[in-house]
Structures are given as C-alpha cells and as structure tokens.
Design a protein around this nucleic acid. Structure first.
Lengths: 368, 368
DNA sequence: CTGTTAGCGCGTTCAT
DNA sequence: ATGAACGCGCTAACAG
C-alpha cells in the first residue's frame, strides 16, 4: 500500500514544461495529517471543522505554497465556473467603439459583481470554437447577430441560462428589450411636427455587410439586425419613403461621410432634416453640415438616438432619444444571477425618452 | 455486468434542477458502439480515425443531442481553458470609460483572436474570489494596481504566464512598457520652450483615493500608480515645483472642475499653461477655460497626453503626446500567445510621439 | 486504425 | 468532527 501512496504522490505530475510540480490539495492534506475532504472544507469553509484543524491545514498549505483549489477542477466538480459569457455581435473592436455596448457591459459588470468575471466572446457561428468550447455558466447575447439562433441551440443543449439584449425572442431565453421601433417613430413624429417634409436618414448597419452604402427599399426585408431594422421601421411609420445611407458601423466618421453625400447637393434637393440612428452618427452629420457651411439647426435639423454623452461634444445639445443603456446591462446581469440561482426571471422591456436639445428646429422658409 | 452498465448510464446525473439529464461523450460512444477515446477523437479530430467511424459517432451524437465535449471537463483534463484573464485596475466601470484602456483591450482581442475569450477581472486584492478562483491560462495586468504584487504571487504559484502593461517589473512577468516619464518631460520642455514659466498640472489619480484634490509635495513619494507618478516626474524634471490638481479619474468633468479652480483667479496668479495627464482631462480644461472667457491657446496653453481621438472634439487640435495604445494591447496579446506556446517572450517598450496641435502657443505678453 | 487503462484535482456522499 | 471511497467528463498513453 505504501507503494501505491508513493506512486500516487506526484510522479506523473507534468504541469507545463520543466516547471516545478504544483502541489495539490491532497499534498496539503497529507502534510497536515488530515484527509482530503477535511482539507477541502478548510478552504471552502462549507462543512464544519475545528479551528485547530483548519489552522493546521492552512499552515501546511502555506508551507507548500498552495494558494487554494485549482479553478478548473473545482469548476468540473461543482458544475459551474462563475463565469458569465458575454457574446458580442462580431468583431470585439466594433463593440468597444460603441458607447452603448460599453454602457451595457458596464451595467452587466455592476450586477455580476466582484465574484465572477465576464468572458467576452464573439458569435462567429456554430462550429466556431469560442462559443462551443468556452467555459461559462450563463450567456448574455449583446446585440443580435445572424448566428444567434445557432448559438442558442448549442447553449440550450448545455443547459446554460441565456439572456438576449435586444435580440429576437427565443424559447427559454430571457429577453431584455428596448422599444426601438416606437421610439424611432416618436422621434420622426417630432421632426414631422416641426414641419419637415424632405427628410433623410442615416442608419446603423442593417446586415453583415460592413460598408457605407445607399439605403435601398429592399433593406427592410433583408435586414438581419433587429435594432437598426426596428428604428428604420419607426422612421418609415412617419416618413414611408425615407431614403438615406447605411453606415458600416456606429461612428461619427461614417455619419460625416454619409452627410456629405446627402447635403452637398442643390439647395432645393437638400433634406431639411437628417434622422441619425445613433448619436455618434449624428455628431458626424453635424460636423459635415458645418464643414459645408450649413448651420444646425437653422439650415438643417439633425437628431440622433441613444443619449450617449459624447466627450467634448459641447457646442450643441443633441436632440435625441435617450435609452437606458447601462440599465439594460444591469437587467441582463440581474436576470443571469437569478437564473443561476435557479429562480425564474421575467423578460424586461425598457423605453426611450425624447430629449429635446437644440439641434432640431422648424425648417427655414428661405431654404425652401 | 449489465447491472454496472445500467447504473452507470445516467442514474446519478443531476445537472441543475429538474433539467433533462445531459448526455455525455460516454453515452455517445456506447450508442455508437465504440470506445470513449474513439468518440473523443471523432470530436477533437486529433488522432486518426476512419471516416466511417467518425460518421457513426457523429450520428449517435446527433441522436442524443450531444453537441461536443463539456468545456469544464476538457479544460481540467488538458490543463488549459483557452481563456486569457485581463486584470483591470479597480472597478470595471472606470476602465470602460477610459479610451486608452479600451484601445488596449481592443489590441489584446486582436491578437488572442477568435479562438479564446478574454475574461475581464478586477484586482481587488488577494483572498478576493475572482482572481483566485477564476479559470484562465494566462493573465494580462492592465494598469498597475496596489494589489499587483499579491496577484502575481498567486498566479506565479499556479504557473500562469503573466504580462503586465505599464506595471512595475516583476520576475517572470513580461513587461510591456511606455516611456511615460520621458514623454512627459518632452512635453513639459515643449511648453517651457514656448516661454511658459507659470505652469500648473492636472494629473491622473495617484493612489487609491478617488477624489479630485490639490496636488501636494508628498504625492510623489506616496503615489502607488506608476503611470501618473512617472508622468508627474517627467513634468517635475522641467518644472520642479509644479503644482495643480489630482483627478478622481480620467475624465473631462474632472479636468473641467480642476481647471476652474486653477484659472478662476487673479490674472497675474493665473497659470499661462496647463499640462494635463490625459487628453480627456485636457478637453475638460479647455472647456473650463472657454467657459471663463479665456481663449486657448491665446490666454492659456493646454496640452494633453495619450493621443486619444475624442469623438466630436473638433474645434481644436490638441497638442499632446501620442501613445500607441492599441499596439500596447497587441504586444501583450502576442506575448501571452507566445508564452502559452511555451516560447520565451521578451519585454517590449513603446515610446510616445509629440503631436503639435493648436492648443499651445507662447504666453501673451499682455497677460503678464 | 481502435480499445483499454488510468487518472486530471477536487468535492461529496457515507461511515465512524 | 473526521476519514475512505468514488466519480464529475474527458483525454493521453500505450497496446493490439
């Protein structure tokens, strides 16, 4: 039997390459002269244990440079890792440049808190390693992607609780929604009520194509991104034939470029108002207008969407629909926490609020 | 023997609570009539296997709704998870609001790529669950924190490869550095050469205190944040007795507040130049100056640090030190990849570049 | 090309 | 309060 023990100790412990062998909880237990389960309890603090034995165990651990259970083994044994997977739309870089995504991530982090970490993933399709092989206990889908359905199938099989922020509704997936369509309609109506009749829009990306391009009538049918499609539908509810441009990503650069194309035309063909689907885009539109010598809102009305507080953009107070972006993230984080605790969690729906700034005004009579 | 098999199948399979029992690779193997290892190979594609057997296994898997190996078990067995832990300074929210941190995260994500995810953690000290219990194979410390040394001790014991961006140097931790001290000195010299003699600074947080406050002579000694201390030292090299304010976080709001305190004084006590430790702060300083009716750079010179492209801030071209923030992240990501492959990875040092914009000019004679 | 064997490191029953 | 066994789900060796 002593043979077994000796052989068991750490003979075939091959960590990485030439590194000193790590000590395990079993080593600690042996040195402390207690059994494995007792040592385990000393660390997890779960069962009952005498203060003296715990001391003994901790001392042995210190001696062996043992700093606690291996997260991987623990995670296998307990069936959970404490990690929440946050599935981002496509390239992580896009997400990081979007204030709304950042705000949502921020909200999520507030709720899942210090205990667990957020694992950032991208949904690049089923069969893709990341989402199938990554270790996490729950998933939050941030922004819908064409791959959403596939990802959900896999996760469902794995019994992973799921929350989708502004995605399509799926069975067993908690939805955190925003009234994009209605809010966009409210904004369009606001512009309409000011008297604008010749209006253009600059939308967020509508599908997987990532290029600045003209909006086509077919886009409403073929759109795969729910958020931008809903906002476009909202605008269409007031301006049924509105045209404009589709950006490659929510950025002021794309807003700038699109607005140059829209505004650098004969005065009587020039739209008197531009409805941007994000504040970042709207800022670019305003910059373009000013670069062309047009005054906002005197010559052209510009409205945005999001209520992003854009650093340094201070000479205007953008008229926009303010959305509770951080709150969305918090709700998703809370839902995940509840689901992991085995509780049910209801869908949540958030609404936007019209913020009337100084970038929208009635069209100037002279201009027409 | 059939008893054993039956009992083995899924009798004590208790996933979460009432959920249908997940099938395991063993179930698939049994149904396909092959051994476990063969089934494993069918999924991992590692060993050699006949197309026919693989088909058989995949068919059995489909029948059982089996979508691939459990990441937790796989990770325990292989000793790695494919996850890179990114340890952020303190509250995740602070990091998300800082363009330089975002850029670095972006760079990291570019290098570690689709395969693995980034696990965002905060270093709240040893004993704190997150860093000790989280599953990851390598750690990147983003911005030094007071807890850095402790975190490193734990990770070292766990044989986790480590990279520190702009942290102190530790044995066995790859350093990705920026020449903060020298760059700050270059910038201060630039201001000096323009003729400024009465100069103030607005620094990033110097220690764990998170409040806007006056800079004191003791701060250089007690500072725990290397980046801001180095930048302050650089400024002190040119202006040995420079005073000013310490912000609570890199934001234009804090820059605004600090600048109001610095500039709203008698004209002959007013600094002719303000050296901000970040562009965000500088933007706030400029806003404050303009709010007080001062012209930049005519009445007051303002310089920043970072080279952040701040959305919508366009009426000035900020004079600043441009740092390769995304590149820093990429270097860290690359280092981690190399370390995980068992290769050595050298330290990397980046340098800043002076960008001369239009916010710095010689002091106006009338003002003195 | 496939099957057998032996754990990865831990937590969790049962006993005592 | 403590110890002995067992297996979470999978894969790396080796044998055939």
């Amino acid at each position: 039997m002593s043979t077994t023990t000796l052989w068991d100790v750490s003979a075939n412990n091959q960590p990485h390459r030439g590194h000193p062998a790590r000590s395990t909880l079993a080593d600690v237990a042996r040195l402390a002269g207690v059994s494995g389960s007792t040592a385990s309890i000393a660390f997890s603090g779960d069962g009952s244990i005498s203060a003296a034995t715990r001391e003994k165990v901790l001392k042995a651990a210190a001696e062996l440079n043992y700093y606690g259970p291996d997260p991987r083994a623990k995670s296998l044994r307990q069936g959970r890792s404490g990690i929440v997977g946050v599935v981002l739309e496509d390239r992580i870089i896009h997400s990081f440049r979007d204030p709304m995504t950042i705000a949502a991530l921020d909200g999520i982090s507030q709720e899942i808190g210090e205990g667990g970490g957020m694992l950032l993933l991208t949904a690049t399709g089923v069969g893709e390693p990341s989402i199938q092989t990554a270790v996490f206990d729950a998933a939050i889908f941030l922004g819908c992607s064409p791959h959403l359905a596939g990802s959900i199938t896999v996760m469902r099989q794995r019994n992973v609780p799921m929350v989708a922020i502004e995605g399509q509704h799926f069975d067993g997936v908690v939805a955190v929604d925003l009234d994009n369509r209605k809010a966009a309609a409210v904004m369009a109506q606001h512009v309409y009520d000011l008297g604008h009749r010749l209006v253009a829009t600059v939308t967020l990306p509508l599908d997987a194509r990532r290029e600045l391009r003209a909006l086509t009538p077919a886009d409403l049918e073929t759109a795969t991104t729910a958020v931008s499609r809903d906002r476009l539908e909202g605008a269409r509810a007031v301006y049924p034939s509105v045209t404009g441009f589709v950006t490659s990503t929510s950025s002021s650069d794309d807003g700038f470029a699109a607005a140059l194309l829209l505004l650098d035309v004969a005065p009587d063909a020039r739209p008197t108002a531009i409805i941007a689907q994000s504040d970042l885009i709207a800022v670019g539109v305003i910059r373009a207008a000013e670069a062309l010598g047009l005054l906002v809102p005197h010559d052209v009305t510009v409205v945005g969407f999001d209520g992003a507080r854009i650093e340094g953009f201070t000479h205007h107070d953008l008229t926009t629909m303010v959305q509770p972006a951080t709150e969305k993230g918090r709700a998703a984080g809370r839902a995940v926490t509840e689901l992991l605790a085995g509780e049910a969690s209801p869908d949540v729906a958030f609404t936007c609020r019209l913020h009337v700034g100084d970038t929208a005004a009635p069209p100037t009579a002279v201009a027409r």
